[in-house]
Design a protein around this nucleic acid. Sequence first.
DNA 1: CATGAATGAGGATTCATTCAT
DNA 2: AATGAATGAATCCTCATTCAT
Lengths: 216, 216, 216, 216
Amino acid sequence: MPDSRNPTAPSRKLDAEKTRQNILAVARRAFAEHGLSGARVDAIAAQISTTKRMIYYYFGSKEGLYLAVLEQVYGGIRGLELTLDLDRLTPIEALNQMVDFTFDYHEENPDFVRLVSVENIHHGVHLRQSETLRNLNSSVITSLATILARGKAAGQFHRDIDAVDLHMMISALCYYRVSNRHTFGTLFGRDMGAPAVRERHKAMIRDVIAGYMRGA
Amino acid sequence: MPDSRNPTAPSRKLDAEKTRQNILAVARRAFAEHGLSGARVDAIAAQISTTKRMIYYYFGSKEGLYLAVLEQVYGGIRGLELTLDLDRLTPIEALNQMVDFTFDYHEENPDFVRLVSVENIHHGVHLRQSETLRNLNSSVITSLATILARGKAAGQFHRDIDAVDLHMMISALCYYRVSNRHTFGTLFGRDMGAPAVRERHKAMIRDVIAGYMRGA
Amino acid sequence: MPDSRNPTAPSRKLDAEKTRQNILAVARRAFAEHGLSGARVDAIAAQISTTKRMIYYYFGSKEGLYLAVLEQVYGGIRGLELTLDLDRLTPIEALNQMVDFTFDYHEENPDFVRLVSVENIHHGVHLRQSETLRNLNSSVITSLATILARGKAAGQFHRDIDAVDLHMMISALCYYRVSNRHTFGTLFGRDMGAPAVRERHKAMIRDVIAGYMRGA
Amino acid sequence: MPDSRNPTAPSRKLDAEKTRQNILAVARRAFAEHGLSGARVDAIAAQISTTKRMIYYYFGSKEGLYLAVLEQVYGGIRGLELTLDLDRLTPIEALNQMVDFTFDYHEENPDFVRLVSVENIHHGVHLRQSETLRNLNSSVITSLATILARGKAAGQFHRDIDAVDLHMMISALCYYRVSNRHTFGTLFGRDMGAPAVRERHKAMIRDVIAGYMRGA
DNA sequence: CATGAATGAGGATTCATTCAT
DNA sequence: AATGAATGAATCCTCATTCAT
């Protein structure tokens, strides 16, 4: 007996996934823009094609939705990190590449930066809550560790620095420009988004890091 | 709204100012902890000696209170910056001192860091709104410019770097460790608050900056 | 906000409309009784079967509710005006009928009168705000214009008066007795609600208007 | 022993009265503009030279202030009515004069009209509350009664109408144009304040009333 | 007479969420 | 799997008024 009631059964699943992704995309913007408390479920609902009820259907709660957004954005950068192919480069080149990648990623994904800031305002409780995120051991550290080892072996790097500490410094320099763009920009009258500034900063950070590793 | 035209009326005045400061201190904690949207006026009121009504009497609105907090914390760091006496030190020593000061200030004032993050989530609109804050041209830049000039003249610094850019790098390195303590700490299993880590980072940042200025 | 696109969903719909009407009826009384500022949303809520939240669900704000009330009461009188069948009467009879209708309507709907007074205290801003109300070109004017033309043609009316001006006079005489009942009644010791007074006034107004049209 | 502490003692009283009048004038505007519930004590205070406390000092409460305003405005029209000298005119002329005076007073004192509307929204409770106002037996009635008697005796008036009823009609016609200016003006696209309209209405009302008294 | 500081009580409104179908 | 209607519980804010001097 053919199920004539539901001729679109196969596409159902696809639609469902599409709906989920649609909600997620809108929510990402909303949480990045207004924070967890500042974002409004109603406002998110108003921007999606289906109804508000779907948010609860798919994500259970506002917090559940926020968590899903967090998992998505952290997954995004991790995915990209995996595509880096640094082994064919010299240690210095690889390090510079790493800096460039980090710099560009932050520059191009201010919403990621904002969401990370939001999560830190919340003491990182959601990140800790999510098994997915807790297990997301960023490949960046192993990549950097490899670069460090190769550079040390080649006599090009003279610092005894931990890969995590190095990553922290690179991140800090790339993150701050974006995260604190508004306050820093206003206080010191500098347009952090201007192309000239961006390129100068990129080169500067590259030099700071490379210089440090070479030095001492 | 209270009006401070009358310089006499002694004890009253002091109580009023005390009340104001009391509210401000509680609010600073609340906004640092929960952000602007997340903080609850009622919760702030519950922690102060007078009633909630006073918040509106003194600050007009939740946003007005937040703005006053922002002015207070930015005023705080600026006040301290002015006490630095760097002219008697060599350029390198002065630079190190500057880094140490910045590092310590961020380390000891996580609420300042959190509030700045909050304000950036809000695109810095309140900072721009406040004339006091817009005019707060941090003395840090002139101090750094002086150090840079002296170092250059003495042949100790070989970089053509802008004082603002240098300040950005120092700030970035000192800020990130505190602002992103929770996500970074969780993701990379590192306790950013541990004394050993703190000291290592402090030395590291000092070296990164000094090395960069010396280098090239 | 509720949306009435779905014509099916029977019982729900009726309940929703019933709730809406219930709120509207209670609000009409409240606004007529206390004015826009004087009416209390809480007090209105206390008198309806559902909760206060519904007021905001259906009407958005206190002002939105007031506007809905205004539209309802103006719609009410307009609906009745349309039921008048004056063409079969002589011009004089039609004019008298018009006066009687206006008189009775004001007498029987003091809340309408009060709401119009309230709206005038607010400079008519809400009336102007509502497209529905702005487009409510009362049929009364065309009716009166027809009567005037017929009376003129029949040689029974000798005044060159504008239908709008005539309507204003009729309205003024019928409105004032109700709107200013309290001050006028108190100052001149007259019970404007007494049946004898009412009938005397009705006849008097009829005569004033008819006499004027005939006269000159 | 001369009281050197208070050299301005005599002017004190004058200042006090000036302050009272100042408050009263501001309050009249406020209550006329926003009604009793809509007017804000703070807003009134902000417009007067002395402090808000003075309002309570002189008038006891917001309601007390409103009552004082009411007494003042009703006293104003009463005072003017007394200056009318109608006995030297013919009955018809006197009646026309009465209409003209009433018309002009309403036209020139829209705040009086608004305050009377406000008081009626409040069911005239304050007017009844005030002994001053209860005893304010408007001389208008006796004036009209005299005119009616003279006109009747002279065979010029043929109506058996009560002076109070006649006053009501004159008032209604003059009041409504001002009180309902906004709603009527908007609904029928008529600018009630335009000089041409005003003059036409004035003549019209004169004719309506005179015609009625003559007629039958 | 005069005043700046203070306030209890209540006001409108918004929020994330769930219910009935 | 999906939805439009409904809501309890806060949330920010304002009001007329009084206190201490």
